[in-house]
Design a protein around this nucleic acid. Structure first.
Length: 601
RNA sequence: CGGGAUGUGGCGCAGCUUGGUAGCGCACUGCUUUCGGGAAGCAGGGGUCGUAAGUUCAAAUCUUAUCAUCCCGACCA
């Protein structure tokens, strides 16, 4: 491609809209333009990168026996009603764009394709003989993100590869899940990324096991915890660890004490001269289920610990049946406004005890009349603990479960794991923290969707069984930007060779020098003929502009037809290492070819 | 949605406090010189100051409303 004919506009200054390096660079180097919030145009250079990534994904998916297809983005609401996700995906904080057509039919723009694919499977898969199978697509997804951000990192329209597998039993599902794990590692390795697979929460998509593939970068939105022995790595949402040891309570008898102005654990411990591990903290949450029932949740947890809201939400979803609901719409710590809507009298905030009376909840048909009481494991085993007295300015000390308070029946693990804590698999290992960009996520869905939508097959005994399913996603556009976030310098992007839009660029510093222009043209033709994707900077620009641009857009190898031509040589510079060498004209093409092949292999 | 901020040629910004006929840098067009690290000179083109109402002789500037965008939290590839 000749730069003189390409739509390329580079900017000298950082765009005001961008915050993180990769976003700034992609805009500055002319890869993307913002069209609306979370909506981007992929310009010619970007599209080549996306196609490179897609091709690597395609090759690795095909290698596992998966088959490519293309599913509709416009999806009838009926399918989502069947799976029970229409309301959760379109109402409240729902993520699906929905619309009504001229026949008053309700449709959604696909944020994901479980419903569509399950409908296809239900129609087509009849027999165990057709299983297992795995089909995938690379396509634009639409999600009405609450807050789009960081360019392609979290767009409202983005490119994703999603695969869905179908199985006769769990064993077969686990085998494919493992194949996908390997394929994903291959994909990220081939794209030249530094990454870490981690245990993940399976969230709204549901199912049992799930694993995320995190591209390591400071700007990542996720925190991951891992041990140096390489045996443990998890998203902080999912991570667990051994809680710090308890410091014995200094109190031995139960009494109520005045503790004015100690609404926080730190001030309380200061005032009572005790350790936070001697305190039972009672945290109030407000959960709204999908049938609009409000449930007030009271969690007792050790004073030094914090509640992991993802884990708590998972516990609450398990209990949805008790409230004739199927899932949770929102989970928040109620602020003053929210409290007013359901409390019958002011709450003793900061001084709540595990036995806070249910009479604090006003009677209303949408509100569960009793607190849902839970105790975290860290608080269950405490002796002579300190906790609130349900009265502002007072705590009780030396308290014990069963003597002074009833231990809630629900004992759960909802504590958040923190860096520095001991690992469960080996207490000599401590957890380290890193930040990552979630580029891929694989799930074992089980039979959740197939049961909801009646996708069954006939087994060898002639019996109908629900199909086992797995799903596997890679954010193609996110992955491409993550590569930039992981690889740039003060001059611009440094693309890994495998996903660079072009592998080489030929610069003719002075296009008016006819001899050099001819040599440049010839080298460009030869490189292209050798299958090396090459740009020719034949613009009527000064040399400095050409060098700056080639570095900004991050082409791995730069060949300059310049001063050394007098000695029959061309200068070849490697973008990543800045390594420069003069190579005889006739050897340039083969040398670059060798380098490119080595990098891509 | 809650909290914070910003909207002025294509991009980055100043002007707004103290109303008076819109400016700088980059980019763009033409010519001359220059030509291996974002050149210099000369000459040019381009803006209903986000939108709408209001106050005023007069509004980019003051008032109100509204829209958009960005940042911090919940969502997720």
């Amino acid at each position: 491609m000749r730069l003189s004919q390409m739509l390329l506009v580079t900017l000298r200054e950082d765009p005001a809209e961008a915050e993180i390096p990769s976003h700034k660079l992609l805009v500055r180097a002319g890869y993307i333009r913002r069209i609306g919030s979370g909506i981007y145009a992929y310009l010619p250079l970007m599209w080549r990168v996306l196609q490179k990534v897609s091709q690597i994904v395609r090759e690795e998916m095909n290698a596992t026996g998966a088959q490519e297809c293309l599913l509709p983005q416009l999806q009838p609401s009926e399918l989502w009603q069947e799976s029970g996700r229409w309301d959760t995906y379109t109402k409240a904080e729902g993520i699906m764009f929905s619309l009504i057509d001229r026949q008053e039919r309700q449709l959604g723009l696909g944020p994901t394709h479980e419903e569509v694919i399950t409908a296809v499977a239900r129609d087509m898969i009849r027999s165990y003989r057709q299983l297992p199978c795995n089909i995938y697509q690379i396509q634009t997804k639409f999600r009405d993100e609450i807050r789009p951000r960081f360019g392609l990192m979290r767009g409202r329209e983005f490119i994703m590869k999603d695969a869905y597998s179908f199985h006769a039993d769990e064993e077969s599902l686990k085998k494919t899940y493992k194949d996908m794990d390997v394929a994903y590692r291959n994909i990220l390795t081939r794209c030249g990324l530094e990454f870490r697979p981690v245990e993940a929460d399976s969230g709204a998509i549901g199912g049992s096991g799930s694993q995320e593939f995190m591209v390591l970068a400071e700007a990542g939105e996720d925190e991951i915890l891992y041990t140096e022995d390489g045996k443990y790595a998890a998203n902080v949402e999912k991570a667990s660890s051994l809680p710090p040891d308890v410091v014995a309570s200094p109190f031995s008898s139960y009494e109520k004490v005045a503790t004015p102005d100690t609404a926080t654990i730190a001030r309380l411990c200061d005032s009572l001269k005790c350790d936070p591990t001697a305190v039972v903290k009672n945290v109030l949450y407000e959960a709204i289920y999908d049938n609009e029932t409000i449930v007030l949740v009271l969690i007792s947890i050790r004073g030094d610990e914090d509640v992991n809201e993802v884990k708590l939400q998972n516990e609450l979803v398990k209990l949805a049946g008790n409230y004739e609901a199927s899932t949770i719409l929102s989970l928040t710590v109620p602020d003053a406004d929210a409290q007013q809507k359901w409390s019958s009298q002011p709450l003793p905030l900061g001084y709540i005890a595990p036995d806070l009376e249910d009479s604090y909840i006003s009677k209303n048909k949408n509100i569960a009349p009793q607190f849902l009481r839970m105790v975290d494991k860290t608080a269950r085993d405490l002796k002579n603990f300190v906790t609130g007295a349900n009265e502002s300015g007072y705590h009780v000390v030396g308290a014990n479960w069963s003597d002074n308070f009833t231990l809630p029946k629900l004992v759960v693990d909802v504590r958040i794991a923190k860096k520095g804590e001991r690992a469960i698999h080996d207490p000599t290992q401590t957890l380290h923290s890193a930040r990552g960009i979630e580029a891929g996520h694989i799930f074992q869905l089980g039979t959740k969707y197939s049961q909801a939508m009646g996708a069954t097959y006939t087994n060898e005994q002639g019996k109908n069984e629900p199909i086992w399913m797995g799903c596997y996603g890679i954010g193609v556009s996110r992955l491409a930007q993550a590569a930039v976030e992981q690889s740039y310098d003060e001059n611009g992007i440094i693309w890994p060779v495998a996903i660079a839009p072009y592998q080489a660029i030929v610069i003719i510093p002075n296009i008016n020098d006819q001899e050099k222009a001819e040599v440049g043209e010839k080298i460009y033709q030869e490189l292209t003929a050798m299958g090396i994707e090459t740009l020719l900077d034949d613009r009527k620009e000064r040399a400095g502009v050409k060098f700056k641009d080639s570095e900004l857009i991050g082409i791995p190898y730069r060949i300059t037809v310049g001063r050394s031509l007098a000695q029959g040589k061309l200068e070849v510079v490697t973008r990543k290492t800045k390594d420069s060498q003069d190579i005889p004209v006739e050897e340039v093409v083969s040398t670059v070819k060798t380098w490119v092949d080595e990098e891509i292999a």
